[in-house]
Design a protein around this nucleic acid. Structure first.
Lengths: 207, 207
DNA sequence: GTCTATAACTAGATAGAC
DNA sequence: GTCTATCTAGTTATAGAC
């Protein structure tokens, strides 16, 4: 395995766990068992390393998600909101095949991107991968045409909040569920629990 | 105004904006216009300062929220979920009287506590202020008795995620709403928008 | 490409004068 | 209680030998 990939793998799990600010290049290179200077040789800076970690996932997820949403948008019958949100399940879970713990790592990283580092990652994602958002909005509009553009805007942000926050504390939540309820849950279970919640929230009656 | 309070005020707004990890004691003391050494003199350490900032809000909010939830729990008729969640509105908004931007600062800090600093703040809040959670769970159980304890646990965390995430990016969201939809919204409006969303999410049908 | 060594800087914390 | 000065340890980043 190349040095570059060893760094990406180590950075990914440390970033997901401790945030971007909370992780030093020294921790990354020592977990990756490569030299400290290698990060700057291969990526130029810590900021570029963060982008590279996220891009590796987005390039894997984005086409799958596009395809999945396209099916929803092009089907004859009007989709339900549950169907729209369920379109995320397979693309997200396929990240687990792509990389060990891929789904939860990716979603945690996404959460970090919105809270760490004053939104530079949010800017990066929305400018580099805008189609994902556009397609999603279209799908929601088909499912619930009475929702105004403003309401879609607000409720989609509520949805992102629910998912991102849940995923960024998913390890802790799964631990609590295990100790308090003897409930053994994995990331797929969490996704299946959160979808009815957000679908119902987005579909809430208007005033 | 005392040095101690100047530090608390400065720390609060910097922490809310840039996170606990992202804010240095030097930034805090220079915004507060006090000496660097004053933090360690008055609070002992940065960690203790974080606790002090949160405690100031929790001690204000907690009794108001308790009273508000008690009314819901003791009323004759079974409450709706909308009523339960609406019990949060006044106590949260009263933080704006207590401190400038109190509502949004507090909710942003709460969000930071779940993602920064590996959950030490979550531990602090749940052990120091357990009644808040207990009363809330009781109210939800009255409104929706079919929900199991596990489901309540998960859905309440989804709710926290929605609210906390929304509030921690509320400034950005209100700006976008203004420029894209000519919609002038304030923090109270955002709260009124989010409540039907979470009430409907918590009330989603079981499988 | 990979290493050592180190520059240049920032962090939290503290000793001791006033 | 408040200050300056400083310590120790951490950070990112880079220069230059191999």
């Amino acid at each position: 395995m190349s040095t570059k990939n060893k760094i990406l793998d180590a950075a990914e799990s440390l970033f997901a766990d401790k945030g971007f600010n909370g992780t030093s290049l020294r921790e990354i290179t020592s977990l990756a068992e490569v030299n400290l200077a290698a990060v700057n040789y291969h990526f130029g800076s810590k900021k570029e390393l963060i982008k590279a970690v996220m891009s590796r996932y987005m390039n894997e997820l984005s086409p799958n998600l596009q395809a999945s949403l396209l099916v929803i948008c092009q089907q004859e019958n009007k989709p339900t909101l549950n169907e729209v949100f369920s379109a995320f399940i397979d693309p997200l879970l396929s990240l687990n095949v792509f990389r060990e713990n891929g789904t939860s790592n990716f979603l945690q990283l996404l959460g970090r991107g919105y809270t760490d580092s004053q939104g530079f990652l949010r800017w990066f994602l929305t400018t580099q991968y805008p189609e994902v958002i556009t397609n999603f909005v279209t799908a929601v509009q088909r499912a619930y045409p009475e929702l105004s553009a403003e309401d879609i805007f607000w409720r989609l942000h509520f949805t992102m909040g629910t998912v991102i926050f849940t995923m960024s504390s998913s390890d802790a939540l799964m631990d609590i569920a295990k100790s308090d309820f003897e409930q053994q849950v994995d990331i797929a279970d969490v996704i299946r629990k959160v979808i009815p919640f957000v679908a119902s929230g987005v579909g809430a009656p208007l005033r």
